[in-house]
Structure formats: structure tokens, C-alpha cells
């Protein structure tokens, strides 16, 4: 039960949604775009969010696309994590998104919602970061496409009222070899998901033309991809022990300590995982 009321709008076009947002904004409605709504509902129940208006984006056609268009996979922001898994057009994304929350909730959580989540984990982002994906954003009067990495720094940086419409991925990147892990306080999570919980460490590794891409969640208070770290991991000459020691020094923030694990334990898990990733991706090629 949400102890306050809000207005609910479900626009039919992206342009309307953005216009509506700005109108509501000027009326002090503190509007929020609403995808699956799981976070808005559960946070509002505890007064951790207080929107006076929500704009449901599930009626916007662009947000409901899930298909290859020419050489890119286009994923609408309103597609649920389950739909990504069931279609399995981008296996690494299935893995990363498919270990978020639990299966039933993933029938409701949308890709856009996971990317823009207020929780520090946002594991679907890991696959998108390592695959060099692009995002399509609706602004007042224009639609823009940008590389995700250029506007994702700890979180997705959008101007007020900007709406994430779609994510697109180079088709050839959807079938690159990958390695992905998730560890919770209670142990590993395999795929299909066999354990539920926030990550002590969640990872996505992808190998593109001999270079390892790597993104992490649970390690710092935000998901990130580190090019310096990738440099080290991809170095054919360097001994694994040295790689691990160096890699750990390239983290963008101190390692997290919380109820799921201490920083020391997370580092231990990270080292083990990096070692496994390097071993797994040794000499593997495209999975298409």
C-alpha cells in the first residue's frame, strides 16, 4: 500500500511522454518515468520516493521493440528482463539481466528500469557496457543516439525529462564469447538463476578481437567498466598473479563493505573471478 497518491499517465508516443514530463515538472508534480514500476512502488511504500505523478512508458511503440534492425539489435526500454531472457538474442545480456531479483519480478522489471535503478547493482548494465552499446534518448523535440559509456558514469546521466527509449547493440557483439559470474553472500548464482540476492560481485567479461572487456557490479557502489583493468587482463605477456595484483589497483572507488560482504572478502572473490575469467576466455572465439 502506497501511503500517498500520485497521478498516472500512459502516453502513446515518446514525444508526448517528454512533453508531459516537462508540463508536470512545472506543476511541481515531481514526475517519474514508470517502466515496470517495481522500484517506484516498493520505495514509495517506505517513503523513500515521493512522486506526485508517474508516466508509464509501456505504451510507447519504440520502447517495446526487441529485434534485429539491420546490423543492430534494438531493445526497447520497456521490454522486461524476462523478455530479454526468453528471446535470448544477446546471451550475455540474458545472463546479466537474468540474475536480477527473481524470475517473477523480472516479468515486470524493464531494461530501462534496471539501467536507471537507484539501487547500486543494475546488473543488466554490465552486458551493455562490455558490448559497447548505444542508447537512444528522447529529448524535448529530438531523438539522440549516444554511446552508453559516454553518458554512463556511475549512473546514466540524462538531463531532466530525457527519456531512455532504446538500447542498441552491434549484432556482431551479441555473439562474442563471454564469461559472467555472480556471487552473493550465500554463494554463487549460476544461469539459469539458482539463488537470489544482491551481488557481492557480479561480472561480465567479453572477448573482442583478443581483447577482454570487463564490467563489475557489487564491488563499488555503482556498476562500472574499467579500460585500465581490461588492458591488464588482455596483456598476453603478464603472469596471472601480477595481473590480479595490478587489476585490483585499477578500481574506480574503494571496495564496498556492507551486509553482503566486507571489502576484503570482495577483493578475494574478485581475484578468484578474474583468474577464472582469464582462464576461461583463453583462446575462445565467437559463439555465433
Amino acid at each position: 500500500m502506497i501511503p500517498f497518491n500520485f497521478e498516472y499517465y500512459k502516453p502513446a508516443t515518446a514525444r508526448e511522454a517528454v512533453d508531459l514530463f516537462h508540463t508536470l515538472q512545472t506543476r511541481d508534480k515531481n514526475p517519474m518515468y514508470y517502466g515496470g514500476g517495481t522500484e517506484i512502488i516498493s520505495f514509495s511504500r517506505l517513503y523513500q520516493l515521493y512522486p506526485k505523478a508517474v508516466i508509464d512508458i509501456k505504451g510507447i511503440p519504440e520502447c517495446n521493440v526487441l529485434e534485429f534492425q539491420n546490423d543492430r539489435l534494438v531493445i526497447g526500454a520497456a521490454k522486461t528482463l524476462t523478455q530479454l531472457q526468453e528471446s535470448n538474442l544477446f546471451p550475455l545480456l540474458s545472463w546479466c539481466a537474468g540474475r536480477v531479483a527473481d524470475h517473477t519480478i523480472r516479468n515486470k522489471i524493464t531494461l530501462g528500469g534496471n539501467i536507471c535503478s537507484r539501487l547500486p547493482y543494475r546488473e543488466a548494465v554490465l552486458a551493455l557496457l562490455v558490448a559497447d552499446c548505444e542508447v537512444v534518448i528522447q529529448r524535448k523535440g529530438e531523438t539522440r543516439t549516444e554511446p552508453l559509456e559516454s553518458i554512463f558514469n556511475q549512473s546514466l546521466h540524462l538531463d531532466t525529462g530525457d527519456l531512455l527509449l532504446q538500447v542498441t547493440v552491434n549484432k556482431s557483439h551479441t555473439c562474442l564469447p563471454f564469461f559472467s559470474t555472480k556471487r552473493t553472500a550465500n554463494g554463487d548464482v549460476n544461469y539459469p538463476q539458482d539463488r537470489i540476492g544482491y551481488p557481492v560481485l557480479s561480472t561480465a567479461f567479453m572477448k573482442n578481437s583478443g581483447r577482454i572487456h570487463a564490467a563489475f557490479s557489487g564491488l563499488c557502489p555503482f556498476p562500472f567498466r574499467s579500460h585500465e583493468l581490461e588492458e591488464v587482463l588482455s596483456d598476453q605477456e603478464m603472469a596471472t598473479e601480477l595481473k590480479l595484483a595490478k587489476a585490483v589497483s585499477y578500481l574506480p572507488a574503494p571496495i564496498l563493505t556492507d551486509i553482503d560482504g566486507t571489502a576484503a572478502y570482495r577483493e578475494f572473490v574478485l581475484r578468484n573471478t578474474l583468474a577464472r575469467a582469464v582462464e576461461q576466455l583463453e583462446g575462445v572465439n565467437c559463439i555465433c
Partner: peptide, 16 residues
């Protein structure tokens, strides 16, 4: 109390 929900207070689930 910092884990007053099933989200942070974990029970054994199906298959575990």
C-alpha cells in the same frame, strides 16, 4: 536493524 526484509534477510529458497 539493518535487514528487516526478505530481500536482505534470506531464507532458503526452492532448489537450495
Amino acid at each position: 536493524r539493518i535487514n528487516p526484509q526478505f530481500r536482505t534477510y534470506h531464507l532458503i529458497r526452492f532448489g537450495e
